[in-house]
């Protein structure tokens, strides 16, 4: 195998080559590694090495995909699209601190329900605390002061409301599951109204979500949480039945609060498309 004359290689690379000569060279390229190296070496004159580098990076990204975070893998495994999974996984609430808070709340409830306690005290404690888990999640799902990339997100075309929905649904699913486990553990010992915390959880989360269309999410979370604790202690102290809040009329009231919150949130959904600053 003979090397290709340098002027031919130069003309080929520069695109100034005669058609017959080009065909001859290209046919030679198929059989001569040396010719390929020659053309490759001459190519640096017309092709920016940075361009080849960029293409290599693009290849490298495809063949070496970054490892998906755990939350994303779980959401994808459940059959949701990968993009949605990524949006959910970026929820600030989906962090270790939130999970720790959930575990803490449940353990606290269980400890309070220790075997030597009498009466409905432990039930009450669990029923009051469990609905606060999703409220905390909602307050940490989206918005100024919570999401460091909030302004970037707002300035993007994706509807803020849709993003909020995706994140809130994720948060609610996780917190309902955790609360459910706690309820089952407790029920074995106490004979709890296992599902009595679900409607309060829904009502409070939606109230919190609706409030975030006016105030910062953390403020909304504190306001709803505080109001709930106030109402819960007042009712349990005054009413003859400690658990009055969690029986028929109370449940209906909390359902109505939740529905009202949902309606307000939908009506004010454009608030999620602006950054609240200052």
């Amino acid at each position: 195998m003979n090397p290709v004359p340098e002027p031919v290689v130069g003309a080929y690379v520069a695109g100034r080559i005669d058609a017959a000569e080009a065909v001859r060279l290209e046919q030679y390229l198929a059989v001569s590694g040396e010719a390929r190296l020659q053309v490759g070496a001459a190519a640096t004159a017309v092709i920016d090495p940075a361009r080849l580098e960029a293409t290599w990076l693009a290849i490298d990204v495809v063949i070496d995909p970054p490892r998906r975070p755990l939350v994303e893998r779980v959401v994808t495994a459940l059959g949701f699209p990968a993009d949605l999974a990524r949006l959910m996984a970026a929820t600030p609430a989906m962090r270790r601190s939130w999970y720790l808070a959930i575990v803490g709340a449940i353990l606290f409830g269980l400890a309070a329900a220790g075997p030597n306690r009498q009466g409905g005290g432990s039930e009450l404690l669990f029923l009051v605390l469990a609905p606060l888990i999703p409220v905390m999640g909602v307050a940490l799902a989206y918005g100024p002061g919570v999401d460091p990339a909030h302004e970037v997100t707002v300035a993007a075309p994706l509807s803020g409301f849709r993003l909020v929905l995706a994140r809130v649904v994720g948060v609610l699913v996780v917190s309902m599951a955790c609360g459910g486990i706690g309820a089952l553990l407790l029920e074995r010992r106490e004979g709890l109204m296992a599902a009595a915390w679900l409607l309060p959880a829904f009502g409070l989360s939606m109230a919190c979500l609706a409030l975030t269309t006016w105030v910062r999410p953390k403020t909304a979370g504190w306001a709803v949480g505080g109001a709930w604790l106030l109402v819960a202690t007042t009712v349990s102290n005054r009413a003859a039945d400690q658990l009055a809040l969690f029986r028929g009329p109370g449940q209906v009231a909390l359902l109505l609060v939740g529905l009202a919150g949902l309606v307000v949130t939908v009506a004010r959904r454009e608030a999620f498309d602006l950054a609240r600053v200052g």
Partner: peptide, 17 residues
């Protein structure tokens, strides 16, 4: 693969171009 790319990307690009 990186090495194969380094060896061939140049001439392939010229010819594709």
């Amino acid at each position: 693969l990186a090495e194969l790319y380094r060896r061939h990307a140049g001439w392939l690009t010229v010819r594709l171009q």
